[in-house]
Design a protein around this nucleic acid. Structure first.
Length: 942
DNA sequence: CTGCAGGAATTTCCTTTGGAGGTC
DNA sequence: CGACCTCCTTTGGAAATTCCTGCA
């Protein structure tokens, strides 16, 4: 729109200029054209897009003029140039502008003229530096970028995304395998102080037990940014052990190897930082390597800087909570020191460093203390002693939320009472919204309370790799514990998302690798699934890819877990709560179903044995069902769990309309499972379903009948007769399997158009078959069998939708008879066709050879002087002699066409082509035959 | 600076049941 | 005279998606 407006404005100004041109007659006649010229050049520059921008930049740098001065300079420059013009032509001295508008215009025009005419390099430079295109360039450049990605580009981007995913999966497996390397594990064990070896002996593993180990590791291994790409990952790991430093990937892998060496069930977890699924996102993504590089650079140095103070501050064998706390606090300190120490490149780094310096000026001690105070609370709640309790609490809240999200009956009363209270308390609708907001903020503040300012700031790189250690005692059911040895973080799964987000890394795929397999554990780390859902690949594909890997992973880590009765009950609850949410086609729902079944089987025994895998699946599923309500309305547009009525489409309805799960901006939030897609009767029919009798339409749409161009006037006269045409829509619950009238007495039941719509086999009336054969209706007609044309769809041609037919529908009893007759007829037809084509071939050969004979005849009669006989080929002989030249006299001389291939009769001489005189050219597959008389013929062999 | 809401631009999806004129 | 073939104006409008802008 804006573009059009601008174009319009430009046109208007051009028109004005043309008008003036006409008024001012000859002296300034070129003005309007020049103006147009300028516009053209502007357009050109717009077309150039980026390159123009660069040019300008170059000019800009050369001039060392700020853009704000450009206008002023331009005028000055032009004024400077003007005298030259005067001196040369002098005709411009009358061009004193009468108004502001005109002055601007003259400046533009003269600018262009001056650029063209000026010979002084200095002036040229200035003028060029001020070239008018400058103003238009950024705008046009921006506009050029707006161009949408085509379907092809999207497809390509998706392919690239998939390939990248597969590569990263492969990489992850590679690392996982390297972590199992006995040599690497042994080397790590040899470095480990003996007091830490006892970790493996702890029967009931918790986060606390891991803390000293993680701290030791963190203190002894540092992150280096650059990697040596040449060597294998195993040797890179060995080198990293030797030097005690490596890439964050290597360090994380080493931590995994160490844990595995200690007999801990451990996974290598990685964020698959895959290229975007959206083609245009490549542009924004292209920045990300920079950020990444920057991040890792700082990260690396920060870690380097930390090592020392860390050793001073943290003594091994301390209480885990303190260790953890110190570790975290120091990360922030590290970042600060790193910034001071490193030269800065980008603006943000500059900012960071400024802040860092400011921070540095403060007393670092107090800072550290503050940080410690701030963080320790979170750390303690997260990690010390409370991990078990916290897990329980989490589990309970999640269960509650799952129930409220899905099981309508249970939570409805509570919800209603809540609503009543809310409504009685406030007259406005905004209050429920406020409440939701408040809850949300409380939640977020509490859950992220423990986040260190460093993890999740840009000072550190995105946490791309970490380990997951199975802690049997971390939860009632056992838990996969997030262990980030690089950043000395344990059980910080909630912090990962924020940390990644701070580094502009999307948490789209978090994959855990073990036992040569892999499992998607994104749910554990991603709290806002709706934000990443659209950035992930089609889940069907992803699940299919992961299925075999998941099995491998499960085989390696999925030991059986003995559960207490209480736990199993809770899981039953989870199962029931997840059942109503089973949306067909949603893989998550399918998983939950399977789990439910598994669990049924398992809980039937008294011991309640479940595998770690199924427990984890259940945990992830619970998380999937317990996402907090988003606070912004737009998040509900494609939210997998919740829906707002305002985002429903024309063909959607809420059924049942409730329960209300909360409010967003005053709008009630419903479970997504209540959203039903409606269809017309015809549409349901297409799927082999029909609307139950006596069902009223769930929704009635007004069809806006478009009056066609010819009818436009008529409709004016007729008023709004056609306007109240409606479309009746029905929902899934109003549908039953299609029962069409069965075929009776060999008569096919037909629709009002005398045909059968065969959208699928389901749409066939009972007792009939679809014979999708060409020309079969002739047979049925001939045999006197009742049939109906089978319409299989529509295609658009010339602005109309045209039904597409494919064969016929007949009663099943006639199928064999028809097929038999059809085969017979088709055989006859084919024989006929073959005969025809043979006859045609024969006739063509005949024509060809007659033409050759004619030629020969003519040659002999009139072309005796011509000694060298031109080569006759099939092609040019056909070109030379049109078929109609074949005369009756010639035809007499022609024998059987098949014989004529080898023997051609001339007027007085019969050519004989002996096999000895034949040559064959392999390349062109042509055989050259020679008669003793010198006549030569080339024949293409097939 | 970031996130959100609303609007504009653009793409995708859904709908849908030829006929006049010429030739054989 | 009827069967068959060819050509004609390219859907087209609503929903969904994406991008931009202004605002808090």
């Amino acid at each position: 729109m804006r573009t059009r407006k601008q174009a319009k404005r430009r046109n208007q100004s051009t028109e004005k200029a043309v008008g003036r041109l006409l008024k001012r007659a000859t002296s300034r006649g070129s003005r309007g054209l020049k103006n147009q010229d300028t516009h053209l050049r502007q357009c050109d520059s717009a077309g150039k897009g980026v390159s123009t921008g660069n040019d300008n930049q170059v000019i800009h740098e050369a001039d060392t003029q700020s853009s704000s001065e450009a206008k002023g300079v331009s005028r000055d420059a032009l004024q400077n140039v003007a005298p030259n013009e005067k001196a040369e032509g002098g005709s411009y001295q009358h061009a004193i502008p009468a108004s502001e508008d005109e002055m601007d215009e003259s400046v533009w025009e003269d600018g262009a003229v001056a650029t063209l005419k000026s010979t002084s390099s200095h002036a040229e430079g200035i003028v060029r530096g001020v070239t008018i295109e400058f103003d238009s360039t950024p705008d046009s450049g921006k506009r050029k970028n707006i161009r949408r990605a085509s379907a092809e580009e999207k497809e390509l981007a998706e392919l690239v995304h998939k390939v990248h995913l597969l590569c990263l999966l492969g990489r992850g497996r590679l690392i996982d395998i390297a972590c199992n390397d006995p040599l690497i594990q042994a080397s790590l064990l040899s470095l480990l102080p003996t007091y830490l070896l006892k970790v493996s002996e702890v029967p009931k593993l918790t986060a606390n037990a891991l803390a000293p180990l993680v701290n030791w590791f963190h203190n002894n291994f540092r992150v280096r940014s650059s990697s040596c790409a040449d060597r294998s990952f195993q040797s890179a790991l060995a080198f990293a052990i030797e030097t005690r430093e490596g890439t964050s990937e290597e360090i994380a892998a080493l931590s995994v190897a160490l844990f595995r060496a200690l007999n801990l069930t451990t996974r290598f977890v990685s964020i698959l930082d895959v290229v975007s699924l959206k083609p245009d996102a490549g542009k924004s993504e292209s920045i990300s390597p920079d950020t990444r590089k920057r991040g890792t650079g700082i990260f690396k140095s920060s870690t380097l800087m930390v090592a020392r103070p860390n050793q001073v501050l943290v003594s091994p064998g301390k209480e885990s909570a303190h260790d953890e706390k110190d570790g975290v606090c120091e990360t922030s300190l590290r970042g600060r020191e790193a910034e001071v120490g490193k030269p800065t490149r980008s603006v943000s780094r500059l900012k960071d460093s400024v802040i860092a310096e400011q921070l540095d000026e403060k007393t670092s001690d107090s800072l550290v203390c503050e940080a410690q105070n701030g963080i320790s609370g979170g750390c303690i709640t997260t990690n010390t002693g409370g991990s078990k309790r916290k897990g329980d609490v989490e589990f309970e809240t999640q269960l509650e939320m799952a129930l409220s999200a899905t099981a309508a009956g249970i939570s409805k009363s509570n919800m209603e009472s809540d609503m009543k209270i809310l409504h009685s308390n406030s007259s406005t609708l905004s209050s429920p919204f406020k409440r939701v907001r408040k809850i949300g903020s409380e939640e977020s503040s509490s859950s992220f309370f423990g986040i260190s300012t460093a993890v999740g700031s840009r000072k550190m790189g995105p946490p791309l790799y970490w380990a997951e250690v199975y802690c049997s005692q971390a939860n009632l059911t056992g838990k996969w514990m997030h262990v980030d040895a690089v950043n000395a973080l344990i059980d910080g799964e909630q912090k990962v998302e924020a940390a990644a987000a701070a580094c502009k890394t999307f948490l789209r795929y978090v994959v855990a690798f073990a036992g040569h397999g892999a499992k998607d554990v994104t749910r554990r780390y991603c709290m806002k699934w709706y934000k990443i859902a659209s950035q992930r690949i089609n889940p069907m594909w992803w699940d299919a890819v992961l299925a075999p890997l998941k099995q491998l992973e499960s085989g390696a880590t999925g030991e059986l877990v003995h559960l207490k009765e209480a736990v199993s009950k809770e899981h039953d609850k989870v199962k029931t709560s997840s059942d109503p949410s089973n949306v067909p086609g949603s893989p998550a729902a399918e998983v939950s179903k399977e789990d439910g079944e598994n669990f049924d089987a398992e809980s039937s025994t008294r011991n309640f044995i479940a595998s770690r895998t199924s427990l984890e699946d259940m945990d992830l599923e619970t998380r999937a069902l317990t996402e907090p309500l988003p606070t912004n309305q737009q998040a509900y547009k494609n939210h997998h769990l919740y829906a707002l009525e305002r985002w429903l489409t024309k063909y959607q309805i809420l059924h049942p309309k409730g329960p209300v799960l909360g409010f967003c901006s005053g709008h009630p939030v419903y479970p997504r499972t209540c959203v039903q897609t409606l269809h017309t009767k015809e549409r349901w029919l297409r799927e082999g379903l029909q609307v139950k009798s006596n069902e009223l339409p769930a929704k009635v749409l007004k069809r806006s009948l478009k009056p066609s161009k010819g009818q436009a006037f008529e409709s004016d006269h007729c008023g709004e007769v056609d306007r109240d045409a409606t479309i009746a829509l029905y929902g899934k619950w109003q549908i039953e399997p299609l029962c069409l009238p069965a075929a009776v007495d060999g008569i096919v039941p037909k629709n009002e158009r005398g045909q059968v719509d065969v959208w699928s086999e389901k749409c066939l009336p009972p007792g009939t078959v679809h014979l999708g054969l060409p020309r079969v209706f002739n047979i049925a007609k001939r045999l006197g069998i009742d049939f109906a044309p089978a319409m299989v769809g529509f295609e658009f041609q010339h602005g109309r939708s045209i039904p597409v037919y494919d064969g016929i529908v007949v009663c099943a009893e006639f199928k064999d008879a028809i097929l038999e007759a059809y085969a017979e007829v088709e055989e006859r037809r084919e024989a006929e066709e073959r005969k025809q084509s043979e006859a045609e071939a024969l006739s063509r050969w005949y024509q060809l050879l007659s033409s050759i004979v004619i030629r020969q005849d003519l040659e002999e009669r009139y072309g005796k002087a011509c000694h060298h006989m031109p080569q006759l080929t099939l092609e040019n002989s056909m070109k030379i002699y049109p078929f109609r030249l074949v005369t009756a006299r010639m035809t007499d001389k022609l024998l059987d066409a098949s014989k004529l291939i080898d023997v051609t009769i001339g007027a007085d001489h019969e050519h004989v082509f002996l096999t000895d005189d034949q040559t064959f050219d392999e390349e062109s597959s042509t055989r050259t035959k020679l008669c003793r008389c010198g006549f030569r013929i080339q024949v293409e062999e097939l």
